[in-house]
Design a protein around this nucleic acid. Structure first.
Length: 492
RNA sequence: GGCCCUAUGGUGUAAUUGGUUAACACAUCGCCCUUUCAAGGCGAAGAGUACGGGUUCAACUCCCGUUGGGGUCACCA
């Protein structure tokens, strides 16, 4: 392990899904690592046995892979500093906890949960500014401690915060942040079950894993002094910290499940492109000095910088995500869109119908400027996948005239004589029919659009007709002229 | 409540670190283009930088205070 090499980590606890805030944290870590040629490490913080969720880790890894954040070291990808599950690193934590014990920087605490909650209650009643552990067990004699251990009384190991100077955090985003020592609690380092708390585990692991930069959410800022105290007690080098602004709901509260989707998986399911999600989330709290906003992963790797991270929390604005999604969709390779379209077709009511790639590609091309999501192809242009069963009444009222049937019959007759008509052939034929009937082209364009698509919106008519093909167009016209006049008379 | 972070149009963000008419994007509205709808182009409206004091020739930028928002005060991360 090269000492000068940048090493960062994303260290989620496996709660079941990847939060979009977590995605952004992971992304910033990834971008920072990649642009400096460093390592991006995934470490699973599973030290809470009560919070075990079946399949959570697998899901997390799958999702990270989907968005393209591949880690250099982590579960199933062992590096030299594993294992990458904290639950498998208990020996390390115990070893270092013992060191702290010996140094007097930590002590065993045998207090019962009852005493602790009573203490808290008393302190609250006494209107103390802050509830803190009273260091009761720090004063236990060697003999008392021995006896308690022999008696099998369970205990935790606490950090011994001694009086002294303020603890100063030098944060890349927030610059200098100062904490008075007397607001720092004697945090539990090792729980009664022998597992470490986050504070202990993350410091030990970050050091052992050679982490140079700790990039994490702002919610960790207020416990960072404890971590610094630990680094100091061990005599370890303190990593560079960067605390990221939080992601917020529309009402500025912390982004929560209650007010919308928070899982990356939710957005995936809704049809967002990974490129869009990455691009959007990157812009939540970070920007370039120029006006660019459309980025792919490589652009981001090149342009990202910790120094340009914004300080205040950012509202997760889905409207802009939608726009970015549409932008990425339009720039996406057509064959990739084709595959995605085939995938959702296979799950749609059209799953049993065969469409050629050639046909679908034409549909994609025709609709590309009109969709924001892949599913829009199906939702907004059903007529490419089935004959219209209903005809938009508003369009009928406005565009269907007494001569529409006649004109459509003429048009159908005209194109039936064409051999493999091109888009231009459809256009020329239509103009001829209009000329013969001495009317404007619009007199045919609009009726033929509703007749063949059922709606008044969509690609250019000639594109529409060409994509559908001559036979289908004629069939649809024949169907429509039997149904629409009746509908028209009903509409009055 | 204590401690900490934070504050630029509705939203995301800029502003050469004190000197611009406070810029860009999304959303909104209008026009052009297109015999549709989009996309695209052009334009409009929308903040005088949370508020109040300072410092300075000059403050969104620095200082102090206030207010709002957020985080954190677990044997959860």
């Amino acid at each position: 392990m090269n000492k000068n090499r940048t090493r960062v980590r994303f260290a989620p606890s496996p709660t079941g899904y990847l939060h979009v805030g977590g995605l952004r944290t992971a992304l910033y870590n990834y971008l920072f690592a990649k642009q400096s040629g460093g390592d991006f490490i995934l470490r699973i913080e599973d030290t809470d046995q009560n919070r075990y969720v079946e399949g959570a880790v697998e899901n997390l890894i799958k999702t990270l892979k989907w968005v393209g954040l591949e880690y250099d070291e982590g579960p199933n990808k062992e590096g030299s500093v594993g294992p990458y599950f904290q639950s498998k690193r208990l020996d390390f934590y115990n070893k270092y906890a013992n060191q702290l014990l010996e140094q007097g920087d930590a002590y065993r605490c045998f207090c019962t949960p009852e005493r602790l909650s009573d203490l808290k209650e008393q302190q609250q009643k006494a209107k103390l500014p802050q509830a803190k552990y009273d260091k009761h067990c720090l004063n236990l004699s060697k003999e008392e401690i021995e006896k308690n251990i022999v008696d099998g009384i369970s205990y935790v190991i606490r950090l011994n915060v001694k009086p002294g100077d303020s603890v100063i955090i030098n944060d890349v985003v927030r610059e200098r942040v100062e904490f008075s020592r007397d607001v720092i609690d004697d945090q539990v380092l090792i729980k009664t079950d022998g597992f470490p708390t986050y504070h202990m585990a993350n410091v030990v692991d970050d050091h052992l894993m050679g982490i140079t930069h700790v990039i994490r959410g702002e919610e960790w800022l207020s416990s960072t002094p404890k971590h610094i105290l630990l680094y100091n007690a061990f005599g370890w080098k303190i990593p560079i910290f960067a605390h990221l602004p939080l992601l917020l709901n529309a009402d500025r509260s912390k982004l929560s499940k209650r007010q919308g989707d928070v899982a990356v998986e939710d957005y995936k399911l809704k049809g967002y492109l990974k490129e869009a999600l990455i691009n959007f989330v990157a812009l939540l709290g970070w920007s370039t000095s120029d006006n660019d906003e459309f980025f792919n992963m490589n652009d981001l790797i090149e342009k990202f910088s910790l120094e340009r991270i914004h300080k205040a929390g950012a509202i997760f604005n889905v409207e802009k995500l939608d726009w970015i999604n549409a932008e990425h969709l339009r720039k996406q390779d057509k064959n990739i869109i084709l595959n995605m379209l085939k995938e959702i077709l296979a799950e749609s009511k059209y799953k049993d119908i065969e469409f050629t790639d050639e046909y679908l590609l034409l549909v994609i091309e025709g609709m590309i400027e009109r969709v924001s999501f892949i599913k829009d192809y199906i939702d907004n242009s059903t007529y490419f996948f089935e004959r219209p069963n209903v005809y938009d009444e508003e369009v009928i009222s406005k565009r269907w005239k007494d001569d529409s049937v006649k004109l459509l019959e003429n048009y159908a007759a005209k194109i039936s004589g064409l051999n493999n008509p091109t888009k231009e052939d459809f256009e020329i034929a239509l103009k001829q029919v209009a000329e013969e009937a001495e009317c404007g082209a619009g007199r045919i364009i609009h009726p033929v659009r509703v007749a063949t698509s059922g709606v008044g919106i969509g690609p250019g008519v000639y594109d529409l007709l060409f994509i559908l093909g001559k036979d289908e167009v004629i069939a649809r016209i024949n169907k429509a002229i039997k149904i629409i006049p009746e509908l028209k008379s009903k509409l009055g």
